[in-house]
Amino acid sequence: MSKSYLTASGSETILRGVSFDVGQSERVALIGASGCGKSTLLNVIAGIDTIDSGVVTVAGQDLTGLDEKQRTLYRRRHIGFVYQSFNLIQTLTAFENVQLPLQLNRFPTEQITDLAQAMLERVGLADRATAFPDQLSGGEQQRVAIARAMVHSPSLVLADEHTGNLDAETGRQMMDLFSELAEQCGQTVLMVTHSRAVADTADRILQIVDGRIEHGDSARVW
């Protein structure tokens, strides 16, 4: 796939013929220097952004032929997204944030409550269910974000530097939790990271250099 952006100084190519496959339940880390196109790649796979040329197929579905609404519905069903800056809805409680994907996927009401409750228990925040995001610590907010990303059992969980805003110890705990949940649910994970420790938890590491996947020794980026 290829992707360019129009900037003030002209067209800037972010992804140049990127091509790779990720197997089911596989955990893949995407590494690369800042601005190399990692987040763009995640956005394209999530259907948030589109590509200029190429094909993106997720869970047997070709995204390139989908319109905006179809991509949204695809994302709703198949994707869970964890961001570096948590991106929780500030006006909803932790419990309500976790309920959101279930609500959007039209789960039955009782199931929404049960699943959200169970997910909060799994991330260790059952007692903080009624707290609003600004009443939670960074680590707690990221736990809620992980719970929200995984509660509806998406086919693919995307994580964009999800430990980047946390201290080393909390980041490690978060990574353990993230890996554990993904493994338990058999979810495919594609994570962007600058952390070697995080990348090392993946089954495979892909490095992006100048908008291309570079297959080789990943160690040189650190």
């Binding site: 948030i48 519905l73 994302r75 069903r77 994707i79 997204f81 991106n87 809805i89 500030q90």
Partner: peptide, 15 residues
């Protein structure tokens, strides 16, 4: 705007 973008990213359609 950003909050709405998050909602869109987790599956809220434009309509």
């Amino acid at each position: 705007r950003q909050e709405f973008a998050v909602l869109r990213s987790i599956g809220l359609t434009p309509s």
